[in-house]
Computed example of a mutant assay.
Amino acid sequence: MAKEKQKVCPICEQKLTFLKSTLKDGIKVCAKHVVTEANLVLTETIEQSTVEEIKERIQLIKVAREDLQKEADNFTSSKQIGNFVAFDEVQQKWATLNSWSTFNYSDIVDFELLEDGESIATGGLGRALVGGALFGGVGAIVGGVTGKRKSKDVCSSLRLKVTINDMNNPVVYINFIETKTKKDGLTYKTIEGAAQECLSVFQLICDKQKDNKKETITPPITVADELLKFKGLLDLEAITQDEYDVKKKELLGL
């Protein structure tokens, strides 16, 4: 007896159309479930997947998207630079805008501006901004970066590499230019200004984080400090002489 032809998608239980994908054991599902919803585009991966695996992947992606939406809803931009990056001063977070992701100010380690793969400016926690200068005011153009560049008429790539304190995702890229762009044009100059403003803001964040860490450093408690504390308790008659003598011997290792 010939095998009955499958007519219904096992994921959405809708009638199969000509837009379908074949899974493990020849089971067919609507193509949208693997191409769009599950983001599986490799034929080899699709053909080795089961219906349950596709359902699980769709659910994981759905949850991840919901989490991203919650982050976006809770993020209040106090400063935005073009369509590249935004900053939330209240929550001390920053976000990439070309592909939404948020990060903590405190996790920034260092950053580097790369033009066509060449490092033209660096900065970060405990480091000065090298290759550029902080913005003097709104709309001010940063100087000093161009001195390190090789003379080229066209830029094909301009991006900021940010190293963060995350073993699973240690590097974040903010892409400013991804196609060939003439340097003498308004587009390049505008984007370059945005990139350099990012440098300044990231350096200010790192400098502030460094200052905050200095303020929160508590000097170690010494034996003398402890003795003074218990002597004060003795003077206040909060402890007896015997109790003080025992504590004194303990602290001095006698």
Results as ranks from 00 to 15, higher is better:
191 I>W: 10
183 K>A: 09
208 K>L: 15
171 V>T: 03
208 K>T: 12
190 T>K: 15
190 T>V: 05
176 F>Q: 02
209 Q>A: 11
173 Y>S: 03
195 A>Y: 08
176 F>N: 01
191 I>H: 12
189 K>V: 11
182 K>W: 08
196 Q>K: 13
179 T>L: 07
170 P>V: 00
190 T>Y: 12
174 I>P: 02
205 I>R: 06
177 I>C: 12
177 I>T: 13
188 Y>T: 05
180 K>Q: 12
211 D>R: 15
210 K>A: 11
185 G>H: 14
198 C>F: 04
188 Y>D: 04
201 V>I: 09
197 E>K: 08
211 D>P: 00
184 D>L: 09
205 I>N: 06
191 I>D: 09
200 S>T: 04
191 I>Y: 10
208 K>C: 13
185 G>A: 12
191 I>P: 15
211 D>L: 15
178 E>I: 08
180 K>I: 05
205 I>T: 08
211 D>E: 15
200 S>A: 00
209 Q>N: 10
172 V>K: 05
184 D>T: 10
174 I>N: 02
211 D>T: 13
176 F>G: 04
190 T>D: 13
190 T>I: 07
175 N>M: 05
174 I>E: 02
190 T>G: 14
205 I>E: 06
191 I>M: 12
209 Q>M: 14
198 C>E: 03
171 V>W: 03
175 N>K: 06
200 S>Y: 02
182 K>A: 08
205 I>K: 06
186 L>Q: 10
210 K>F: 15
177 I>P: 08
176 F>V: 00
201 V>A: 01
198 C>Y: 00
211 D>Y: 12
177 I>H: 11
185 G>R: 15
174 I>C: 00
192 E>A: 07
181 T>Y: 03
190 T>Q: 14
204 L>K: 08
190 T>S: 14
190 T>N: 14
200 S>G: 05
178 E>K: 11
203 Q>R: 04
206 C>V: 04
198 C>M: 04
208 K>I: 13
186 L>I: 14
203 Q>F: 04
196 Q>E: 11
179 T>I: 11
174 I>A: 00
187 T>Q: 14
210 K>G: 05
193 G>T: 12
195 A>E: 07
185 G>I: 10
184 D>I: 08
210 K>M: 15
184 D>C: 07
178 E>V: 09
198 C>K: 02
188 Y>R: 06
207 D>M: 06
193 G>K: 13
181 T>F: 02
194 A>Y: 14
202 F>G: 06
206 C>F: 01
195 A>V: 14
182 K>G: 12
179 T>V: 09
188 Y>A: 06
177 I>V: 15
205 I>P: 07
179 T>N: 08
198 C>N: 01
